[in-house]
Design a protein around this nucleic acid. Structure first.
Length: 602
RNA sequence: CGGGGCGUGGCGCAGCUUGGUAGCGCGGGUGCUUUGGGAGCACUAGGUCGCAGGUUCGAAUCCUGUCGCCCCGACCA
């Protein structure tokens, strides 16, 4: 490709002010993407090459384990989503599915994910266990009406994703395929030249049993991951399970009511009364809103030095109740409290708060759902609110197991926690960018969409399903977050738009020009992905642009052309090799091979 | 949705307090010079100052409304 005639670069001198994180700034400045609207981007030619590189790697690896590529529609009829009971959750309120009506008033959604569509189609073509297992995938634009799009392609409203769906005759077959897919994902990311970590994950709105996320570690990441140094454990903080530190026992001498005027937080209570947070149980109130408008108030209790994990709490409540849980929110708003609760001493709540605090006129359920975390359930003696303003009290021999309390894990694991009692390894924390996620869906969708097959015994059974996503455009940006320097992008060669860029420093010099053309055509003939910067610009401009766009190798053709000598430069570590033009191709091939094999090290 | 910030040429910004011919740097075009690290000189094109009302002889500037974007949070794959 020639910059002047077929491949305009569109680099910018200044960084557009809208970009905050480095990878987003570089994508814009180096001319890879242009913003069209909030969370909507055009992929420029140079970006498309990166996308196609990543896609090709994904296709190669998935095909190697027998997956089949197809292309599904983006307009999804509402009926399908109503069958899976996701329509309301995905469109109402803060749902993320764009939706619209056709000229006849029929409702449609723009596909944010494709479980419904693929399941309904698979059920039509899969009749017998003999056709199983089967895995279909596509690489296509997804639409999500994110509440707040941000960081360029990291969280955009329109993005390219590889999504795959597998079908099985048993949970066991699904589980083994899921493991295989996990290995394939590792290969894909390694083939892209990326460092990733696989972590246990919450399965979120997609639902299902096991799920694993693949993260690129980077400070700009939106997720927190907890892991042990040895690699024996790694999980998203939403899912991570650990052992909390030991509580400090309360003194025997303390008992009865404690006056705590204006002390509404754990910290204030501890500071003023010489207590440790681990001696306190905090009571947090939530409201669960279910599909069909029913609402239940929740008392969630946890040791004072720990934090409630709202994802765990959400999943727990969703599991316990039949209508789908739409929303879980903390009750803090005074208007809501006044309307639904009476004698409600917020800030001084204890675990024995009575059901009579819920007003008869409220449309809430008239009974608190009571949940306590393991960290607090067996404290023999603890401090908590006395259910009266400005008072706390010492609870002794309060038994959660004999009351209406559910004892569950609703706690955020944290840095420094141990993962096993007899083990000294402590959890560490890092930020990560989620680029892949695999799920064992089980039979959730096949049940709802009536997707059945005949088993060996002739009985109709629900298909077992898995689903597997990779954020293609997100990988591209995350790769930059992981591979850049002060000058610009340093692509891993595996996903770089070109392998090499030729920079003639002065095209008016006929010797340089001839040598440039000769080298360029030689590279083309030998199928090297080469970009020729044939602009009539000063050398400095071309050097800067080449560094900015981040192609791993540069050939500088300059003064030494008279002697048929050029320079070969490695973008990443800036090594320069002065070399005869005759040996250029073979040197490049061996150098680039090293780079391909060594995961983008020169 | 709550809080904060910003809308002025392709990009980055000044001008607004105190109303009076719409500016600067970069980028674009033409010409000459220059040519290994974002060149110099000269000429040049390009803007309904987000939009709509209002105040005024006169509004980028003041007032009201509205739309959009960015950041933090809430929320969410």
């Amino acid at each position: 490709m020639r910059v002047t005639t077929s491949f305009p670069l569109g680099t910018l001198r200044d960084t557009p002010s809208e970009a905050e994180i480095i990878s987003h700034q570089l994508l814009l400045k180096a001319g890879y993407i242009r913003r069209v609207n909030s969370g909507i981007y055009a992929y420029m030619p140079i970006m498309l090459r990166v996308i196609e590189k990543i896609s090709a790697i994904i296709e190669r690896e998935l095909n190697s384990i027998g997956c089949t590529k197809l292309l599904l529609p983006q307009l999804h009829p509402a009926d399908l989503w109503k069958k899976s009971e996701r329509w309301e959750g995905y469109t109402a309120g803060e749902g993320i599915m764009f939706n619209l009506k056709d000229r006849q008033g029929k409702e449609f959604g723009l596909g944010p994910t494709h479980e419904e569509v693929i399941t309904s189609i698979a059920s039509e073509i899969i009749n017998s266990y003999k056709q199983l297992p089967q895995c279909f995938y596509q690489i296509q634009t997804k639409f999500r009406d994110e509440i707040r799009p941000r960081f360029g392609l990291m969280r955009s409203r329109e993005f390219i994703m590889k999504d795959g769906y597998s079908f099985h005759y048993s949970g066991k077959d699904l589980a083994s395929f899921y493991e295989r897919m996990g290995d394939t994902y590792e290969n894909i990311f390694k083939s892209c030249g990326l460092q990733t970590v696989g972590v246990e994950a919450d399965s979120g709105a997609i639902g299902g049993a096991a799920s694993k996320e693949f993260m690129i570690t980077a400070d700009a990441g939106e997720d927190s991951i907890l892991f042990t140094q040895s690699g024996s454990y790694a999980a998203n903080i939403e899912k991570a399970i650990s052992i909390p530190s030991q509580p400090i026992p309360l003194k025997d001498s303390i008992s009865g009511i404690i006056e705590t005027p204006q002390q509404k937080t754990i910290l204030e209570v501890c500071k003023n009364n010489n207590l440790d947070p681990s001696q306190v149980i905090k009571v947090v109130v939530f409201l669960a809103k279910f599909e069909g408008k029913s609402e239940c108030p929740i008392l969630a209790c946890i040791r004072g030095d720990q934090h409630i994990n709202e994802v765990k709490l959400y999943n727990l409540i969703n599991k316990l109740h039949t209508p789908n849980l739409l929303k879980l929110q903390k009750i803090e708003d005074k208007n809501i409290i006044d309307k639904n609760l009476v004698n409600f001493p917020l800030g001084f709540l204890g675990p024995d708060l009575g059901n009579q605090t819920i007003k008869a006129s409220s449309n809430w359920d008239k009974k608190w759902i009571r949940i306590i975390d393991h960290s607090a359930s067996n404290l023999p003696k603890f401090i908590s609110g006395a259910n009266k303003v400005d008072l706390h009290k010492v609870y002794e021999e309060f038994s959660f197991s004999s009351t209406e309390y559910l004892i569950e894990d609703i706690r955020n694991a944290k840095k420094g926690d141990k993962i096993k009692i007899d083990h000294n390894e402590e959890l560490e924390e890092k930020k990560g960018i989620e680029i892949g996620h695999i799920f064992q869906l089980g039979q959730k969708y096949s049940e709802k969409l009536n997707a059945k097959f005949s088993d060996k015994d002739g009985q109709l059974k629900n298909l077992w399903m898995g689903c597997y996503g990779i954020g293609v455009t997100r990988i591209a940006q995350a790769a930059i977050e992981q591979n850049h320097d002060q000058k610009g992008i340093c692509w891993p060669i595996q996903i770089s738009p070109f392998e090499i860029i030729i920079i003639p420093t002065n095209l008016k010099d006929p010797i340089q020009k001839d040598l440039t053309e000769q080298i360029y055509s030689n590279f083309l003939i030998n199928k090297v992905e080469v970009l020729l910067d044939d602009r009539d610009d000063r050398a400095g401009v071309k050097f800067k642009d080449a560094e900015l766009i981040g192609i791993p190798f540069q050939i500088i053709i300059g003064r030494d052309s008279v002697n048929k000598e050029v320079e070969l430069i490695c973008r990443k570590n800036n090594t320069k090799l002065k070399i005869s033009a005759d040996k250029l191709l073979e040197t490049f091939i061996s150098e680039s091979e090293i780079m391909y094999n060594k995961n983008s090290q020169c």
